[in-house]
Design a protein around this nucleic acid. Structure first.
Lengths: 165, 165
DNA sequence: CGATAGAATCGAAGAAAATTCGGCACAGAG
DNA sequence: CTCTGTGCCGAATTTTCTTCGATTCTATCG
């Protein structure tokens, strides 16, 4: 029998209140998700088995969406970052979801926001150089008929993964 | 003797070229950083010990900056997100670094960008409700003498943690 | 072409950690 | 007070991690 992988729900289960131990777990795992369960339980003052059950419950409830790694973009040959504001054509507002789905498949896109206000999307991209960014805008944005306007800003510094107590 | 924790350099070491195996490691760990070393090595077709050495080298070289968890903000009572553009006073451009440092300490701030273009900063915040956002802007931005203008946009959808092949 | 030094990989053994599970303690309901 | 459900504990089991010497690969040099 294959080792059954416990299914993590995509959606956050409602009604899952977090106590101070849960919050401390999240805080510690945010800093180091590879911390051993023993070290975690010791820092919390509970038994390892209890701690493990907590973490599993947090995953099961969708509080922890996933464990991941923070990779330096420069190591992947993406030394430059940009933020691109995109406004869609007024008539194409129904294709916003589809537009977002397409963005997920583009390797240069690391994250994007669907926002209210003047613009519709804000896209965060990583690239080799400015030419690479220009190529991305031309190929994936300007060429798309639903896109009305774009505005690109270079990122000089990006700080992420901050605590949320 | 306490188990000495191998120090991970803050800065990316130059000259660390990634081969296709390294890239696959990063891809797989991005999806599930808690994947066992055995499963990882099996997916790569190398021995567990080799795989472990690779991962350690990637950490040591600063390619992997850290292992972390993706937590649903709603679980922490932060059901609403916003992006806030900030322009600083022309005379206070030297205090930009200090401004960023202060942002790191504010719990509502999950990430921020220091950008070129019309605005100087773009801040991503999570909050309980719109009043909470308004309070954040008043307390941490409008009240700061170096801040010239702000513009807040609500986030309807946020997709992050995309692959970067 | 062949030799050699260096680096990377492998495999197995020992150490450490995760996981399971039966029992216990506590809180709330009846 | 008793019952019941929930969460916690801790030891035994299973799995995984980690180390290390031997081997293979690779690129350079004679």
């Amino acid at each position: 029998m294959p080792p059954k992988r416990s299914r993590t729900p995509k959606e956050l289960q409602p009604g899952h209140e977090l106590d101070h131990i849960d919050r401390k777990i999240l805080d510690l795992l945010r800093d180091d998700a590879r911390m051993t369960n023993q070290a975690l339980s010791a820092a919390l003052g509970v038994a390892p088995s209890t701690c493990l059950a907590r973490v599993k419950a947090l995953q099961q409830a969708g509080v922890i969406r996933r464990f991941t790694v923070d990779v330096d973009p420069r190591a992947l040959g993406r030394g430059i970052e940009a933020l691109i504001s995109v406004r869609l054509r007024p008539g194409a507002r129904q294709q916003m979801v589809a537009f977002g789905e397409n963005l997920k498949k583009v390797p240069e896109v690391t994250q994007y926001f669907f926002v209210g206000g003047m613009d519709d999307f804000l896209i965060h991209v990583t690239a080799r150089d400015t030419d690479h960014i220009r190529q991305f805008v031309l190929e994936h944005l300007s060429a798309d008929p639903v896109v009305a306007t774009t505005q690109t800003s270079l990122v000089f510094d990006h700080v992420s993964g901050l605590a949320s107590h």
